[in-house]
Simulated scan of single mutants.
Amino acid sequence: MEPTAATAPLTPDRRRQRVFDFLDAHGIRYTWYEHPEAPTCEIALRYCRGDGAKHCKNLFFRNHKGDRHYLVCFDAEQRLAIRDLEQRLHQGKLSFASEQRMERWLGLRPGSVSAFGLINDTANHVHLFLDSRMREWPRYAFHPNDNRATVLLEHDEFMRYLAAAGNGYEFLELY
């Protein structure tokens, strides 16, 4: 049997706490705040606190064969066309991964996808593509795998998080 992200679905509170526990265990500095449920970036942006962070959109894809999975992270105020993304990623035909695949590899449900889902990918199967502009952003904002809260972290702290998570990642010009 292949490794999976989680054997049973976790509650949103428990998913959030797992993110905080991981960040704390690795000495990664962050702040966070709660807000009403925000299952889309458009809704989440309504709750921004003028915190100076760039809020990130995260999309989960699979390749045509279904044997490779990708998390794509970029500015929440931007849009991506899948066909354009296919050209930029050079991974063949892409489609959105199913809810079952999202649960299996990231331990997440739709509406709460974030780069923090990588902590649940114990096999480090999911490859992360980050928009190259993210290198210029001083601060990021993500859901902590629960769309009722936002975590803020500085660029260097996010890079430390990626190293601790262990998944492959790369910066690419996405739009």
Rank of each mutant, 00 (worst) to 15 (best):
F61Y: 12
P144G: 04
G107R: 05
R15W: 08
P138V: 01
K57N: 07
H55Y: 12
G168Q: 14
E2M: 15
L153R: 02
E170M: 04
E170P: 05
L89W: 02
A164P: 10
H127K: 14
L71E: 06
Y175L: 07
Y30P: 02
N145G: 01
C56P: 02
Q78V: 08
R83V: 06
D156E: 15
R88D: 00
G107Q: 11
R14A: 13
A25S: 15
D75V: 05
H127C: 11
Y47A: 11
W32A: 15
P144K: 06
C41Y: 00
E103P: 04
R101K: 15
A123D: 13
I28N: 06
T11N: 05
S95I: 05
E103D: 10
F96C: 00
A25V: 02
Y169L: 12
L108P: 07
H26A: 01
D146A: 12
G168D: 13
A44E: 10
A8W: 03
F158L: 15
A6I: 15
P39K: 05
G111D: 07
G168F: 11
E157Q: 14
R49F: 03
V72Q: 04
E2P: 11
H143D: 10
T11S: 14
Y175P: 02
P144L: 01
R139Y: 00
N63M: 08
P39E: 00
V19E: 02
H127T: 14
E157G: 01
K65V: 11
R139A: 11
S132E: 14
F60P: 01
Y140D: 09
L152C: 11
H155S: 07
D156S: 14
L71S: 09
Q100D: 15
R68I: 03
Y47H: 15
R14Y: 09
L108G: 06
G111K: 08
R62H: 01
E154K: 01
V126G: 01
L118V: 01
R83A: 09
T11G: 12
N167A: 10
V126Q: 04
D13I: 10
H127W: 08
D84F: 00
N147Y: 04
T40I: 05
F142K: 06
G27H: 07
L10G: 06
R62A: 09
Q91H: 10
P9I: 02
H64Y: 12
C41G: 13
A25F: 04
R88E: 00
Y161G: 00
Y47R: 13
E170Q: 13
T40D: 07
Y169F: 15
V113L: 14
D75F: 02
D24P: 03
Y169W: 14
E154G: 02
M102N: 07
R135W: 02
N120C: 12
